[in-house]
Amino acid sequence: MSLQLTEIERVKTISKEDFYNNYVKKQKPLVIEELTHDWPAYNKWHLNYIKEVAGDKTVPLYDDRPVSYKDGFNEAHATMKMGEYIDLLQKEPTNYRIFLYNLMKEVPLLVQDFKWPNIGLRLVKQLPMLFFGGENSRVFMHFDIDYSNILHFHFHGKKRCVLFAPSQTKYMYKIPHSLISREDIDFDNPDFNKFPALKQAQGFVCELNHGEMLYMPEGYWHYMKYVTAGFSMSLRAFPRKMSNLSRAAYNVFVMRHFDNLMRKLKGQSWIDYKNEAAIKRTHKQLHITK
């Protein structure tokens, strides 16, 4: 048995009006295949080009180790020169990823390679973030702290994306005071005996190819797997719903600071408590007995 996943709808191109009315307003994900075809990035943005223009930059790296009380919020696990990291990506599979990194601040030349899409969203111009990953590396299931609408562009290779709407949160084994689900869930091959609520979850899936864009509506859960080594760029627009703006403000100004404080006060027992609570609360809400 596998997750209940529906292929995300695809179009080659779409008008601003159709995109806004049929996807943003309805909060439906979409893949647009040819949005980047007139960007310089479509031909230029491969790993060797990034190495050429940014190889000397020191970048933060993350791996798939479980969350520890010793880690700060989004604290990197290691650093490396970008050139060395790209050499590693091209040599062999690695769990090291670059996550939510504003490389364009370090290398302004990259800004000339893409165009801000006129697609009906008021994009935040200060936040073009890049993400890199090695073959088979994974980004744990999570939703974004700011509940943004996200345009996620992929370059160099293939990336598998699994999404769940906010309405599916009750099945996701969400960690309290956090933005993630249980990290021991393998969303490629979930253990339904241990995590039976996942059998009820209904989600979406797509495989992004070079130059394709995935629209992720606000608050959507997402899990990413780099089928091949590659990298992506996300552009963001603030949430349209007032309720999501309120949740975003709470996450940014209250939740993450409270969680960091409890890690300092209680150490690993705080992490263990949250992991246990994720199962207990999910099963209690859904009347699952084990």
Rank of each mutant, 00 (worst) to 15 (best):
F99V: 10
Y171N: 04
M255E: 13
H283S: 06
V53A: 01
K158P: 03
V124Y: 12
R247V: 00
W116K: 12
L235K: 09
L265E: 00
G230C: 06
S234F: 09
K194Y: 02
K225D: 02
M82D: 03
Y69W: 11
T13Y: 09
P60G: 09
S68D: 12
R65W: 00
R240A: 14
E218V: 00
V24N: 09
I288T: 12
M262T: 14
S181E: 01
Q268T: 12
N149P: 03
E52M: 13
Y85A: 01
R256M: 11
E207W: 02
L198R: 00
I271V: 15
E276R: 10
W116C: 06
N102I: 06
M1T: 13
S167K: 15
G157R: 06
Y171C: 03
W116H: 01
V67G: 03
K125A: 12
R236Y: 11
V111L: 15
K159R: 03
K274S: 10
F114R: 10
W116S: 02
D71Q: 15
D71M: 07
A41Y: 08
M104F: 04
K57N: 13
Y42T: 03
Q27N: 14
A54E: 04
G157T: 06
S246M: 15
G120V: 04
K57C: 13
K284W: 00
N21R: 13
